[in-house]
Design a protein around this nucleic acid. Structure first.
Length: 112
DNA sequence: TAAATGACTTAGG
DNA sequence: CCCTAAGCCATTT
């Protein structure tokens, strides 16, 4: 498949993440059709942060923490946005994936 | 076309 | 709980 297609799929998947829930980079990569491309997914998010209406803040790392990134203020903003949706952070700044992790598309076969 | 670049992840200390 | 080392991969230079 075309390389740029992956990015489009990633964007698409991120748009599916429900409000109040989160997904990991690896999870998004898998749903986008490229299991194991978590890192590439991060690269894409980094360059697609200007996508209008994209719920980028719902994507976190496998540790349940928001990633640092290039902008030093981004993590704080991300945390704010998530808390506003009801996503709770532990005192150490960790999200309980067991509770807030998105289960994925309701019907994996129906989408795309 | 080849080399560099991360908003990653897992396994170990 | 914090840190490091290695794999991994599409995107960007």
């Amino acid at each position: 498949m075309d390389s740029s297609t992956f990015r489009l799929r990633v964007i698409k998947v991120v748009h599916l993440i429900p409000r109040g829930q989160v997904a990991t980079y690896g999870q998004v990569a898998t749903l986008a059709g490229q299991a194991g491309a978590a890192r590439a997914c991060g690269t894409i998010m980094r360059n697609s942060g200007e996508e209008p209406g994209l719920p980028w803040h719902r994507v976190i790392n496998a540790q349940g923490r928001v990633s640092p990134g290039n902008d030093v203020h981004r993590p704080q903003l991300q945390r704010h946005l998530l808390e506003a949706e009801g996503v709770a952070f532990s005192r150490a700044g960790v999200i309980a994936l067991g509770r807030f992790r998105w289960a994925g598309p309701v019907d994996p076969l129906a989408w795309e």
